[in-house]
Design a binder for these strands. Sequence first.
DNA 1: TTCGGTTAGTTCCTTCAAGGAACTTACGAG
DNA 2: CTCGTAAGTTCCTTGAAGGAACTAACCGAA
Lengths: 161, 161
Amino acid sequence: MACSIARTLDVIGEPWSPLILRNVYVGINRFDQIQQSLDISRKVLTERLKWLVESGVLERREYSSRPPRHEYALTAKGLELCDLLLVMVRWGDRWTAGEAGPPVLYRHHACGEISHVELRCAVCDRPMGAADVDVLPGPGAGAPAGSHDLPGADRYEHAGP
Amino acid sequence: MACSIARTLDVIGEPWSPLILRNVYVGINRFDQIQQSLDISRKVLTERLKWLVESGVLERREYSSRPPRHEYALTAKGLELCDLLLVMVRWGDRWTAGEAGPPVLYRHHACGEISHVELRCAVCDRPMGAADVDVLPGPGAGAPAGSHDLPGADRYEHAGP
DNA sequence: TTCGGTTAGTTCCTTCAAGGAACTTACGAG
DNA sequence: CTCGTAAGTTCCTTGAAGGAACTAACCGAA
């Protein structure tokens, strides 16, 4: 579990990143639009966008040369990150609901119904949450036994298995 | 979509929080254990734990009075947040895999197989990801039409619908 | 041709939060 | 009586975030 979470957080761990991602997802994908809708500092937005592009989550593309204008689009990698947002939304709706119900609804293309996501087991299709699994060391585990503080560890790479 | 993400991020938005949650989930649930395994500053850990307890995600319980000793445990609310971690792990494994495969594996109690989570539609059971939904305004939407910058907004509450 | 206006950033300065190391409290063991 | 441990606090230093203003590259209108 450890390092995959850390690696994911390395990409979208800072608080603004998921909100930026969400905005691009819903079509707010130009610099000034994002900056105004989130009320984020232009400097930080520049940094985050650069990082998200470097990480392969967003793509910066020119929609007009002369005047050079750019917009940001989700890659396949980024679109799958938005699945994570869907799960966040689900939790936020369930546990921190405002007075008036969820602010946004999702209609599933396949069935046309207003719905929400559920976690299922990829093998047996039954519900699969954190309460329904055992955690075992896998092939990429840092070291067999009880070793923490791997040496060349970057930010977020502290967490041992 | 907006504010539910923001509300969720308000609880676990800072980078350390998901890692703390994960540690408690796997049984590393005392102050010094967490501090050492994450190599996090004691001060910040204190703050995060306090916040997670206030948010109802963790519970601080005394496992020994005199000497007063405490440990942290997940609440139901917190356990469901761990579902989010499972989805993070899935993404991290797929897109930022190390050389040697995933560091941790999950065995599903119901079927006994090593597996991973999939997102399904709660209504029709078919796969449901960010690519498979339309986003519509819901009952709790800030305002009907194109209004941003709601006034009394706290941190993360900037994001309009 | 000059005067805005728009988009996408930089630059600079100030404030706030994170990190690190040492200190505190409350006990129990030798 | 000193040592060790768990769970924090306190203090100081560094790094990142926020804010406002400035730049660049063009377009269209006066």
